[in-house]
Measured scan of single mutants.
Amino acid sequence: MDGTRTSLDIEEYSDTEVQKNQVLTLEEWQDKWVNGKTAFHQEQGHQLLKKHLDTFLKGKSGLRVFFPLCGKAVEMKWFADRGHSVVGVEISELGIQEFFTEQNLSYSEEPITEIPGTKVFKSSSGNISLYCCSIFDLPRTNIGKFDMIWDRGALVAINPGDRKCYADTMFSLLGKKFQYLLCVLSYDPTKHPGPPFYVPHAEIERLFGKICNIRCLEKVDAFEERHKSWGIDCLFEKLYLLTEK
């Protein structure tokens, strides 16, 4: 054995408090879109979701699917093309516009009456609605409950000090017999300040354990050449399924 860690023996890093005071403002996230600093976007979609999607959907149609901090995630069109209703929230209007443009979807925009100064973008087909606002303002819009949440790049982007508020927001959107698919990253948080932030299993239990059954479905090596600039040499991604207790 050469000592290389595999996707099945990932350790939890003990120094989980080192990132707790890290803060990125909404304006800084918007600047990332304006300046093209969106390496977190996956042009081909998320491979773990693609692998498990049909198993999760079980042939159902007409589900309501929520994408927190959606950006221009191509997976939104995957669900819409399968007959589901997609709702996303994203602070960057540019990111939302790029989604519709890159997916060749016509759309309209209208003000969100409950949140002055914000807009919702709706596909002409009517099954994709993307709200351009802070996720913490979203419950004011009465958008209803969801059958499924796809959380990739959301919890790991939320400032650590806001995670409890974020989890409570997610709980307010969950319908009966929900499936909450959650991706988190595992790396040494003493070497990279984030975002994306390190979210250990214990944190998921703390945030969601009282209401959800929590199961880790898969762990994969997600390290890429660009991650060397973070000062790390190891990065794993974990896919969790959260269901109603």
Score class of each variant (00 low, 15 high):
Asp2Arg: 10
Ile211Val: 13
Glu75Arg: 00
Arg140Ile: 15
Asp221Ile: 01
Thr4Leu: 08
Ser186Asp: 15
Val74Gln: 03
Leu185Lys: 04
Leu94Val: 13
His84Ile: 03
Ala167Val: 12
Leu181Glu: 01
Arg5Ala: 11
Phe40Cys: 07
Pro111Trp: 06
Val184Arg: 02
Ser7Met: 12
Cys133Ala: 12
Lys77Gln: 11
Asp147Met: 01
Ile128Ala: 02
Arg226Val: 05
Tyr240Arg: 00
Ile158Tyr: 04
Lys238Gln: 15
Val65Asn: 01
His227Ala: 08
Ile128Val: 12
Glu203Trp: 02
Leu53Glu: 07
His192Asp: 09
Val156Glu: 05
Ile128Met: 06
Pro160Val: 03
Arg206Glu: 08
Glu28Arg: 08
Leu24Gln: 03
Cys165Asp: 12
Lys60Asn: 13
Glu218Met: 13
Phe171Gly: 12
Gln19Ser: 06
Val87Arg: 02
Thr38Ser: 10
Cys70Thr: 02
Cys183Glu: 09
Gly36Arg: 13
Met170His: 00
Gly36Pro: 09
Ile204Gly: 01
Cys212Ser: 02
Gly45Tyr: 08
Leu217Tyr: 14
Asp31Ser: 13
Gly36Ser: 12
His201Cys: 05
Glu109Leu: 04
Asp151Leu: 00
Ile149Gly: 00
Leu239Ala: 04
Ser106Asp: 14
Arg215Pro: 03
Phe40Asn: 06
Ile232Cys: 05
Leu174Arg: 02
Phe197Met: 03
Lys50Gly: 07
Glu75Trp: 04
Phe121Thr: 01
Thr118Pro: 09
Gly71Leu: 03
Val23Trp: 10
Leu239Met: 08
Ile143Gln: 04
Leu8Val: 07
Thr190Trp: 13
Lys20Phe: 12
Phe40Leu: 06
Gln44Glu: 13
Lys72Met: 02
Leu174Cys: 02
Leu155Ile: 09
Ile158Ala: 03
Glu17Leu: 10
Ala80Thr: 07
Ala154Glu: 00
Asp31His: 09
Phe99Ser: 00
Gly71Glu: 04
Phe100Val: 01
Pro160Lys: 07
Asp15Leu: 12
Trp230Gln: 02
Ile214Leu: 07
Ile211Cys: 14
Pro68Ala: 04
Asp168Ala: 11
Arg163Lys: 05
Leu63Trp: 11
Gly88Phe: 00
Ser124Arg: 06
Gly175Phe: 09
Thr118Phe: 08
Arg152Gln: 06
Gly126Phe: 07
Lys32Gly: 08
Asp151Tyr: 00
Val89Ile: 10
Gly3Val: 12
Lys32Arg: 11
Lys176Leu: 14
Phe121Trp: 05
Trp29Tyr: 03
Val74Leu: 05
Lys176Ser: 09
Leu174His: 00
Gly209Trp: 07
Ala80Lys: 02
Val18Met: 12
Lys145Leu: 04
Lys177Leu: 02
Met76Ser: 01
Ser61Ile: 10
Ala39Leu: 13
Ser108Gly: 08
Thr243Glu: 07
Glu27Tyr: 12
Lys145Ser: 11
Tyr131Ile: 12
Leu181Ala: 13
Met1Gln: 15
Ala222Ile: 04
Glu102Ala: 10
Phe146Arg: 00
Met1Ile: 15
Glu75Asp: 06
Lys219Asn: 06
Glu75Leu: 02
Cys70Met: 08
Ser186Leu: 10
Leu217Ile: 09
Gly59Tyr: 13
Leu155Ala: 01
Trp230Gly: 07
Tyr198Glu: 02
Met76Gly: 01
Leu241Arg: 04
Val65Ile: 09
His227Glu: 09
Pro111Ile: 15
Ala157Val: 06
Leu63Gln: 14
Glu27Gly: 10
Glu109Cys: 15
His84Cys: 08
Pro160Gln: 03
Glu102Trp: 04
Thr101His: 08
Met148Lys: 00
Val34Tyr: 07
Tyr187Cys: 05
Thr141Val: 13
Phe208Glu: 01
Lys228Cys: 10
His201Pro: 15
Ser124Ala: 15
Gly209Thr: 14
Glu28His: 11
Ile10Cys: 10
Glu75His: 07
Tyr187Asn: 15
Gly36Lys: 09
Ser125Glu: 11
Pro200Phe: 01
Asn213Arg: 11
Thr141Lys: 11
Phe178Thr: 02
Lys145Arg: 06
Thr113Pro: 12
Ser106Trp: 10
Arg82Cys: 08
Val18Trp: 09
Leu26Asn: 10
Cys216Phe: 14
Glu43Val: 10
Phe79Thr: 04
Tyr131Val: 03
Cys165Ala: 07
Leu130Trp: 01
Asp221Gly: 09
His84Pro: 01
Gly144Tyr: 03
Pro189Arg: 04
Glu28Tyr: 14
Gln42Cys: 08
Trp33Glu: 04
Lys177Ile: 06
Gln97Cys: 14
Asp2Glu: 14
Lys37Cys: 11
His192Tyr: 15
Asp137Gly: 05
Lys122Pro: 02
Leu53Tyr: 08
Leu49Glu: 02
Gly175Pro: 11
Pro160Ala: 08
Ser124Leu: 10
Leu138Gly: 00
Val23Arg: 12
Ile211Gln: 15
Lys60Phe: 15
Asn35Ala: 14
Lys177Asp: 13
Ile143Gly: 02
Pro139Arg: 12
Lys77Cys: 15
Leu8Asp: 15
Ile128Thr: 01
Thr169Glu: 03
Glu244Ala: 08
Phe100Glu: 00
His52Asp: 12
Leu207His: 00
Thr101Tyr: 09
His192Met: 14
Pro193Cys: 15
Glu11Ser: 10
Phe208Cys: 03
Leu242Ala: 02
Asp81Ala: 08
Arg140Leu: 13
Gln44Ala: 14
Lys238Cys: 15
Phe223Ala: 13
Lys210Phe: 14
Phe178Pro: 01
Thr16Ile: 09
Trp78Leu: 06
Lys60Asp: 07
Gly153Phe: 08
Leu138Val: 14
Lys51Leu: 15
Lys37Arg: 10
Asn159Ser: 09
Pro193Thr: 14
Phe171Asp: 08
Gln22Lys: 11
Lys58Arg: 14
Gln44Trp: 07
Glu90Trp: 09
Arg64Phe: 01
Asp221Val: 14
Leu105Cys: 10
Cys133Gln: 03
Thr113Lys: 01
Leu94Gln: 15
Leu24Phe: 07
Lys32Thr: 12
Cys133Val: 09
Asp2Tyr: 09
Gly153Trp: 07
Gly45Pro: 11
Phe208Pro: 00
Phe67Cys: 04
Gln22Thr: 05
Gly88Ser: 02
Asp221Arg: 08
Arg152Pro: 04
Gly209Phe: 05
Ile91Glu: 03
Ser108Leu: 13
Arg64Lys: 14
Tyr240Cys: 04
Leu181Val: 07
Pro193Lys: 02
Thr38Phe: 12
Ser92Thr: 03
Cys216Arg: 11
Asp31Lys: 11
Lys32Asn: 08
Ile143Glu: 04
Tyr166Val: 01
Tyr131His: 09
Glu224Asn: 14
Leu207Trp: 09
Met76Phe: 01
Pro139Gln: 14
Leu173Val: 15
Ser125Leu: 12
Asp147Thr: 02
Phe121Glu: 00
Lys245Ser: 05
Pro111His: 15
Tyr198Asn: 14
Ala157Ser: 15
Pro196Arg: 05
Gln179Lys: 15
Ala157Pro: 00
Ile211Asn: 15
Phe197Gln: 12
Trp150Ser: 01
Asp81Val: 03
Met148Glu: 00
Ala80His: 03
Pro68Gly: 01
